[in-house]
Design a protein around this nucleic acid. Sequence first.
DNA 1: GAGGCAGAATTACACGTGTAATCGACAGGG
DNA 2: CCCTGTCGATTACACGTGTAATTCTGCCTC
Lengths: 121, 121
Amino acid sequence: MERIAEGEYTVMEVLWDAAPLTAADVAARVPEDRGWTLATVKTMLSRLLAKGVLSHEEDGRRYLYRPAIRREDYVAEESGRLIDRMFGGRVPALVAQLAARDKLTPADIVEIEKLLKELKS
Amino acid sequence: MERIAEGEYTVMEVLWDAAPLTAADVAARVPEDRGWTLATVKTMLSRLLAKGVLSHEEDGRRYLYRPAIRREDYVAEESGRLIDRMFGGRVPALVAQLAARDKLTPADIVEIEKLLKELKS
DNA sequence: GAGGCAGAATTACACGTGTAATCGACAGGG
DNA sequence: CCCTGTCGATTACACGTGTAATTCTGCCTC
């Protein structure tokens, strides 16, 4: 699967959230703080099409864009990559790191424990 | 903290593992599969210096390089960034994703549970 | 002392990315 | 029927990055 840049990912998020959309719709849904013009969004859409991670169908003179890959798949790949690079592929090392940094609230801990318990059954 | 590119990260890993080192030493320790020449490694070292994530001290006519940031700090920042972007900052969502993808071995599960239990005490 | 070797510094260059502007085609309103 | 706004397509441009080669400078050897 082609790598998706950070800005491009923003656009993918929009389309994973609602699809299909026109370029203008996408632009309208991109978070304000990116401050992108419609032109910029269109560039992103073209590049994502070229990468094969979006598909488009014609709707009159416009395109309707929709994701061609699943969010979970992409997220899985990216997080796997990070875990491999930074934690030698060891998930417990990641969790230990988060714990050491106080990134786990008591609620998180309970929730994760519950998840794990279910896994074992 | 300045962002570190993927290739540059490879060099940081070497220096986190052993420091201080000369440029030649670093080059010798970079994983084979990158296939980098000494020149390339030197470029990386300069850029990392410029970013302020390495420091160097003179040793005669050479430099000895050493990390100026801690590995844990960088790793924490990067994993935080990923969790924010892909999981809305929710660690349990990440763990759920790993579970759904069978990225957790039974040994991992046990280990994580142990970690969490200790956290609560 | 001259020539070469070893370092760092400087320069190179293509590709990806962020961030658009411009162009060419066309549809709809007056 | 022409103007204007709206599409996608094409082009632009600077900066980061991967991947070096070239240059400059001084030390070591013969």
